Simulated scan of single mutants.
Amino acid sequence: MSVRPKNTLTSLAPHVLAIAASLVTTIPVYLVCVNALKSEAQSSSMGVDLPTELHFENFATVIDRGKLTISFLNSMLYSTGAAILATLFAALAAFILSRHRTRLNRALYFFLIMGIALPINFFTLTKMMQVTHLINTKPGMIILYATLQVPFAVFLMYGFVASIPRELDEAAAIDGCGPLEMFFRVILPLLMPVLVTTFILSFLNTWNDFIMPLYYLNSSENWPMTLAVYNFFGQFKQSWNLVSADILLTIVPVLLVYLAGQRFILSGMTSGAVKG
């Protein structure tokens, strides 16, 4: 009889921890949502109470004063462009490194994935951006973001490529396919789950980044939404309703992308997890 209470407590503990973690995550989102619809006076305390009157005009004010239309298009350009480049080049690299496991390729693989953990040397990076004339340019930010996403993308795809039978390569070669034709016509379609996963994760990481545009974008015309929110907060830090509306407009696109691709992320993360 004495064993049952212990078993009950053991079974309840994970649920309690999950509820606590959910509250920690959802409470800030709830505060942003409710205060984005309040008046300036009611939102001054950032309370949890519901708005007495809905102020949808806060969003129009934020879009107009915060230049969110331009920053939204910039964020979409940076995130989509970087995600496409990172996914494509990482897939090519993972295919070559996984299929031809020579000592050199093994060393190159470990050299690439070191980029996941090693800190960024901003002094060297800034010098490279200046030398290549990519600083304060949109193409420069796309290339920079794509480069930053490649290490994790290669790591994610490497094991997935190893799960594809080599017999498919041999059959494609017998049919007369060259290396590039084999990759794009035979291998790439089979990589679709991990390709979608890599694209979504690269998109989210780029969209949420704040440091890179802060260092390498001087013109407000090139700012993404994260930098536009930062600048907006500096101008309207007393108007918490507008700040909350600004934050909400920034996180809604990334939430929609994540929710739309959640099942692909889970399948892509687990499919090649035991390979490599």
Rank of each mutant, 00 (worst) to 15 (best):
G47D: 06
T132S: 15
T132E: 07
Y145D: 08
V161N: 00
P213M: 10
T87W: 01
L108W: 04
K127N: 03
T198V: 12
G268D: 04
G276S: 01
L266R: 11
E53V: 13
L201D: 06
A82W: 15
T126E: 14
N105L: 04
T226V: 08
H15C: 13
V243H: 02
G66C: 07
L259C: 09
L156D: 01
L68Q: 00
A107D: 09
I116P: 06
R263H: 10
F56L: 07
L256K: 08
L88G: 02
A94N: 13
N205K: 11
R4P: 08
F56N: 04
W240Q: 07
L108C: 11
I84G: 06
I96H: 14
K275E: 10
F111G: 14
G66S: 01
N58V: 00
I247N: 03
I187N: 00
L214C: 10
D246S: 11
T87K: 00
P28K: 02
V32G: 00
T52S: 08
D209Q: 02
N218S: 14
F110M: 02
S71L: 06
V229W: 02
L73R: 06
L188H: 14
M1H: 10
V243F: 00
K237L: 10
E40H: 05
R106E: 12
P14D: 08
G159M: 08
E221K: 15
P213T: 05
L17C: 13
M46T: 11
G140M: 02
L249R: 03
G81M: 03
P165E: 09
A146W: 00
L266T: 13
T8R: 15
P253N: 12
V150F: 13
A162R: 10
L50Q: 09
L144H: 09
Q262N: 13
R65E: 11
L97I: 02
G261D: 01
A83I: 09
R103Q: 05
L37M: 05
N121F: 13
